[in-house]
Simulated assay, not measured.
Amino acid sequence: MAKTDDAEVLEVADHQVRITSPDRVVFPERGETKLDLARYYLAVERPLMAAMGGRPVLLQRFPGGAGGPSFFQKRVAPTKADPWLTTTRVSTPNGTTADALVAVDLAHVLWAVNMGCLGFHVWPHTAADPEHADELRMDLDPSPGVTFPMIQEAAAETRALFEELGIVSRPKTTGNRGIHVYARLQPRWDSYQVRAAGVAMARELERRRPDLITAAWWKEERGSRVFVDYNQNAPHKTVFGAWSVRANAHAQVSTPFAWDELASIEPRELTIATVPARVAATGDPWADAGADPQSIEPLLAMHERDMADGLMDAPWPPVYPKMPNEPPRVAPSRAKKVP
């Protein structure tokens, strides 16, 4: 690491990455700086790259640091200063395309950190194989009134259903109040099929624990239950990445953990300051994910069963075109009453 005028130059992955204004405080309530954030990612390089290496990433940039205004940046272009930047073509639900940054190595991550990125939102496919989504991502989202112990209980139910179907799953904190449960997949299915698997999973969880879990898209129907957000698997959707640092007051990290830690995990304790030591002591709980890709055939069969029983597709987010077999895209309380 070399220092120039108001910049630190890091030698990373055979590239020189400038961290300008390294002493700028990024987390004002804690005091960590831009360079501290870069050092965090250096400390978790191996598990970070195992989780998102080779994938397109959407950058959430906070020019003034955590707590300030932010914007999402999808389009990235190499410059004369950084000609080595790698990008790939991605699409939005309406068909607009952009060249997004690919997390080829840690140099690309630190380049984004220097640009004020405080959150990496990761595509469910690699740049090398954009036609196949190789991750199923179940987002256990706390509705108003939902406590973290309820999220933990819902995660245990999610794991149990995955195990019953013969699918290996792995959990992580979201960096806020929820839990994400991932299954790394064989590269055989597109995002429409993976979303169908997510819909089937969410509906079956709701059937088994309607007191705790809901698959209801409309907030007015959820009550104080854990919402399983199946639409996080919709085509072109990104999810906050494993090992990424949230722009909240606690500088929480979206941290993978082992299932036997579920009852004791405390998201607010998993921060930019504590996670490196945790990784050094216990390693990467997702280390074998890539060597053990899973099949979603049992969930697709469950989805086909639901359709045969007369269920329609679950609602899609409003930015997507109207989909076949989708119910009316309007909240039940606003739907016209049929005489």
Rank of each mutant, 00 (worst) to 15 (best):
P327Y: 03
Q294Y: 03
R137S: 10
S21Y: 15
R305I: 00
I179A: 01
G68S: 10
R329C: 12
H125A: 14
F257P: 01
T255F: 14
I151S: 11
V17E: 03
E153L: 09
F240T: 07
V245N: 10
S143A: 15
P130K: 13
E157K: 11
D260G: 00
N325F: 14
R203Y: 02
D260S: 07
R208A: 00
M312K: 12
K80L: 10
F71H: 03
M49I: 04
E266T: 12
V102A: 09
T271A: 06
A7N: 13
R207P: 04
S254W: 07
R188T: 15
R208V: 00
D23L: 01
R61W: 01
V228S: 03
T86N: 09
Q232I: 02
L140Q: 09
A51K: 01
P256N: 08
Q294C: 02
S295A: 10
P83R: 05
A273P: 01
I19S: 06
L48R: 01
L205A: 06
P210L: 08
I19F: 08
P210R: 07
T87Y: 02
E135P: 00
G65A: 09
A263C: 11
V279R: 07
A183D: 05
V228K: 02
F240H: 11
R222V: 06
A7C: 13
S143W: 14
P285C: 04
P235D: 00
Q294G: 02
S295Y: 02
E11I: 07
M150G: 13
D14V: 11
A103Y: 08
V104Q: 11
E135G: 00
V76L: 01
I213F: 06
G31M: 12
D284T: 08
K322P: 10
D260E: 06
A308C: 05
A128T: 12
R159Q: 09
E269Q: 15
A50P: 06
E297C: 08
F148I: 04
E8W: 15
F257D: 03
D14Q: 15
N114A: 07
L118M: 14
P285D: 04
R177N: 12
K34Y: 05
P28T: 09
F120Y: 07
E297N: 13
V275E: 12
P298I: 00
I213T: 05
E206N: 10
Y192V: 14
S244F: 04
G175K: 05
D309H: 15
E326D: 13
Y182L: 05
P78V: 07
E11M: 10
S169C: 02
Q152G: 05
L58C: 08
T174E: 01
R18H: 04
P327M: 05
E221K: 11
L101N: 06
I296T: 00
D23C: 00
T147I: 11
M201F: 13
N231K: 02
L262Q: 03
P317E: 13
P293F: 00
S244I: 04
A66G: 12
P28L: 04
R177P: 02
V26P: 03
A215G: 07
A160I: 09
Y192L: 13
N231C: 06
P318E: 14
M323A: 13
R55F: 08
F257G: 03
A43P: 01
P256A: 08
H250N: 09
P332L: 06
T173C: 04
P339W: 11
T97H: 14
R39C: 07
K337C: 13
L42F: 04
N325D: 15
L37W: 08
M115A: 15
T271R: 08
